[in-house]
Design a binder for these strands. Sequence first.
DNA 1: GCAAGGTC
Length: 611
Amino acid sequence: MKIVIAEKPSVGRELAKVFGATTRKDGYIEGKGYSFTWAFGHLLQLAPPQDYGFIGWRKQHLPMLPARFKLAIRKIKTKDGFVEDPGVRKQLDIIKKLFDEATEIIVATDAGREGELIFRYIYYFLKCKKPFKRLWISSQTDEAIKDGFRNLKPGEDYDSLFNSAHCRSESDWLVGMNATQALSISAGSRSVLSLGRVQTPTLAMICSRYIEVKNFVPQIYYQIAIQLDKDGQLFKAISITNFKTKEEAQQVFDQVEDIAAGFEKGGNITAVEAKPRKEPPPLLHDLSSLQQEANKKNGFTADQTLNLLQNLYESKLVSYPRTGSRYIGDDVFATIPGLISKLTDHQAFGKQAAFLQTIKLNKRSVNAKKVTDHHAILPTGEKAYNLSKDHQAVYDMVVGRMIEAFHQECIKEITKITVNSGSIFVANGTVVQFAGWRAVFNDAEDEKKDEDNPALPKVTAGELLPIVNKALLEKQTKPKAMYNEASLLKALETSGKEIEDEELRYAMKDSGLGTPATRAAIIETLLTREYIIREKRNLVPTQKGLAVYEVVKDKKIAQAELTGQWEKRLEEIRAGASVTEFKSEISEYTKTITQELLVAGAGLAAQLADN
DNA sequence: GCAAGGTC
């Protein structure tokens, strides 16, 4: 009997289906000489400090550097504290039984670093010695699966990938557990002051933004607005200069040749520019972009959106949710017309779905090379009945985005009118000439933008128009916005670097903080620790969060770059470099940061006591 | 009591 082990049930079932294995057993599916089983993500974790004899949080234990790490069954939190997850224990027993019967094991966990670790931890925990081969596929279509099984790789080909995963795992434990205990102990805090490679840079981003906003000194400046009349259609133009003093502005203001000052036609149109701007449709959603949109549109937290999406996935209404890809391959693209045809009588999107059937679909979101373990989030085509309001909202975002993504470009005409009347004024206007993908949602947000950029009358250079009104405006420079869940998620994707270009941001997604699957949990951790609170939709640091930030802000553990440095080394290990050097560097760093925090935390004790 | 990673 050959045993195939997948990362999660949905994949295990899919593989079984392709093989025609249909006998459903408890925790696996049997048939055609194979058994298909699965994990539920990581079933095992590195054992906690007490399993190495570090009982209680004591300074003399630090730094804790286990000579050999142990594995422990994943725990869940209950009223009685942490206990072994019974479902996990049961599935491990099932896997053990299957491994014992196996002639060969086929590893079908996700094709990546963590997928490799999920399997190897199980394999070593169960002390299994059977030979194993690796299925390595980046698409879940029948053809890709069959092809993958015809080209199984020797298991040892992925030993270096496991090494890099193993280093990642142990390094996070060493730095996180030691730093957390060191700071908590030295601050004499009754509550946990947790620190980690990901959560601490995230906290630092929130705190430094908060401080920047708090210390922001608004600058006052002045602008002059004039209102012109073209055959009864009024439009507004603004001075191109921002004046530092009211006097300067007043002087220019007085020179405006408006009707009240006796100038019947004092606005001289000096230039008119009109150019079309094409806006391509947005890419399909990955988890992060969907969380951001759900936060902006509905105020859902990242965690809520992930949960809602997970429910929809379990109800087989949407594809795998924790994806980091916004693309699909050509094979999945072939199924899109079918999905669209099921939506033509949809209440909100039906009309646009019907329209899509008449055009050539936009292929911006189609790129097999940019599909990693999982493709972008799509509806499955199953009928959705009786969804709760929140589930419906998320589901509609998935469906609506699919319609948008395959729709046509939106074409706008951008108009810029330059007016001279004692000074130079400019009016900007935008007219949507062809809505294209923007017809799908017709957002209120977009309408609001249109208010700032209204349609402008047709005018030509050389025309003289009456200025019916003028105003001297006092304005203030504004600070950056505080982080909210949407902007924080976006910032985490690029480790806090501000990159507006969508394509460029996408290219950086491997150097972000955390992963799609973990970012919601990172935010929740910071909230649980009472480092941050939600204030309306903003994420704002507490006194405690700011105090911790002050202690660690100049240390490596608070820098997003730490992850970047680790990733570089881990990639070298994956390519075959030795692990011993990296491991000894991590041990050294663990000793250093532990010592530093044991000292620095003392200052924190007083601050925390003050509150 | 603690990390970050994955998932139901």
